[in-house]
Design a protein around this nucleic acid. Structure first.
Lengths: 336, 336
DNA sequence: CGGAATTGTGCATACGCTTGCAATGCTACT
DNA sequence: AGTAGCATTGCAAGCGTATGCACAATTCCG
């Protein structure tokens, strides 16, 4: 079977006895065309299985309808949900998402140049470690950029995050109310501004009260196994914490498991454990972990809305939006 | 600041005092161009921050370099990992992934027509429920399609799955060896061909032995909570199973939790539980769930490789590849 | 009914690149 | 030196759509 060429606007024009320009207008919302000819054209188009070639359209309109998603943080427990949300929201707005994975700095740069060659109209970045080069590229390329739940200093991009200051304060107050004294912080990415925002504000909150303080802070720890190991190490110290604030639920679950099965630590009496993220497993009856619910859906939708509006208004001035994250108290903290 | 136009091949040509065609050739691997002029051109290009406009290239080459990913199965425990693998493999091959999310049949069709307008060179489908319309669209559009871990009858597409027959047989044999008798099957999607492949072959295997049989089969059950509820229901029956084969680890964990905390069932003595997927939590010491490790990475890589080779050879004949999945025996099955 | 105002249509060109073809320059060999 | 053969380059015609401009058709109004 010979491969039949896809029909184009000229074919449709011929069949409908109109000009190619009219066909184009028939498929352009709001274009100047009479209802009659439009109907005639759509009819012919249907006969020929025609649909506009977006590549060609992009070329002549000088915008592709593509939105780049730079996704680095694949280990994030809600990675799939977030990506799904991004893709759907982008599609809904009439754009198409093209996804690039990036781990290293070079790959970030490569992804960006790729985005540029594909003439993406905007970029959403989901990654915890900032890239310096990105900033330059953004400005030069003149396409708007949104950073999702991740801030980076000195980058000309819009930033959508949770209000980490409030989270830190909420945690601090909950701990003070329950008279916990010695806080350990266990975090994964030391560069994450969200994480440092939380711990700074937590420190500030508890420091107002005599006797309660942050006694240790460990970084670079992520995952269940690492959590398990961490609690064992922490428990060898002379001064043991009575609170562990952990910037990942998985790690927190590892810690919890260590407490219950290996070390026989009484949670929450002797040790309070607070995670971050509210993954499903945190709510399982086995675990019942206190944690912070991050409004991923809102973060995602806000990011996309913000980006698209920037694309449509051709505006490049960065915006910064902070959304509220809620502390969820479950079995791993004393009840009042 | 006035937005400066992105430079094009003509600009580079002017700066390098060559023809525009030569610039094009300088950026086309294997094109006929002398080392000297190529260097001159690349130099000029660097000065102008030039890089080829892929949209324009696509238009003239009549292929976009885009691969569509139709992703429906976002609840899959390894969704993120799979998508990551797809995106990276596709990028590595010099293509770009554009992701569409699809739940309903209409959205599948819409996604496909979108893919067509974007002139994608091929499509990878990750979804468990087949679409009839897809088939027609594939053939008409003449772009190769790969179905990832999911078969669909009568579709003109390549199919990459695990060898579900072997999985069913392996599970069956493991159960027979340990003298389990009454098997219940708990599955999520009743349409999944992979799942039905497993259960058919499991049935066939155990039916060869007198006294062992499948006593019940429930579908439409997925997730931890649903698992918890299911075991409670199953345990109300007169004839209770001594094996539950579950086509999702999450569900299996829910069942397990119900056994241990609610019903006090002795696992694995009185009840053997086998999951599917080998999610990380299955290996956690709390759970220690027997399961089947699905070679997602290989599935993903094979899909991409297969698709790209079809794209490059312009071949449309479907291929079917089955990969091996390994049964992992942990604490939820009697040891021999 | 006439003409002004509005709307609809076609023509032609632009978007940035690839590529067949023809022309040129170069190498090597007789 | 002359010429065949090859590597390199330029020319120009696409690829499919959008859109400014000019003109045609319709509507509106007095």
């Amino acid at each position: 079977m010979t491969v039949k060429r896809r029909s184009n606007s000229q074919d449709v024009a011929d069949l409908a006895s109109v000009s190619q320009a009219s066909v184009s207008r028939a498929f352009t919302p709001g274009a100047s065309i009479s209802a009659k000819t439009k109907a005639k054209i759509l009819n012919a188009a249907a006969k020929l299985d025609y649909q506009p070639n977006i590549i060609a359209r992009s070329l002549s309109k000088n915008q592709s309808g593509l939105v780049g998603i730079l996704f680095a943080n694949w280990d994030h427990p809600k990675a799939a949900e977030i990506l799904k949300g991004l893709c759907e929201a982008i599609t809904e707005k009439g754009f198409k998402p093209v996804v690039q994975s990036a781990n290293t700095l070079e790959s970030v740069d490569r992804a960006f140049t790729d985005f540029l060659s594909y003439q993406v109209d905007g970029v959403i970045v989901f990654s915890t470690s900032p890239s310096a080069n990105m900033s330059a590229l953004c400005i030069r390329s003149n396409i708007p950029i949104v950073l999702l739940n991740h801030t980076a200093p000195g980058i000309n991009a819009s930033i959508i995050t949770i209000d980490s200051t409030k989270v830190g304060r909420d945690i601090g107050n909950a701990l003070l109310e329950r008279a916990y004294k010695r806080i350990a912080i266990v975090s994964s990415d030391p560069n994450s501004q969200v994480v440092s925002g939380i711990s700074d504000s937590l420190a500030e909150t508890v420091n107002q009260t005599q006797g309660t303080r942050i006694i240790s802070e460990r970084t670079g720890i992520h995952g269940y196994e690492a959590g398990l190991q961490t609690i064992v190490e922490l428990w060898r110290e002379d001064v043991k914490p009575d609170v562990i604030v952990c910037t990942s639920d998985y790690t927190a679950l590892g810690i919890l498991s260590g407490c219950r099965h290996t070390l026989n630590i009484n949670v929450p009496q002797d040790l309070c454990i607070i995670g971050l993220g509210d993954i499903p497993a945190a709510g399982w009856t086995d675990h019942d972990l206190s944690t912070v619910k991050i409004p991923h859906n809102e973060l995602v939708r806000t990011s996309v809305t913000t980006l698209i509006s920037k694309i449509e208004t051709q505006s490049m001035d960065p915006e910064s939006i902070k959304l509220d994250a809620k502390l969820i108290l479950r079995g791993t903290i004393k009840s009042l």
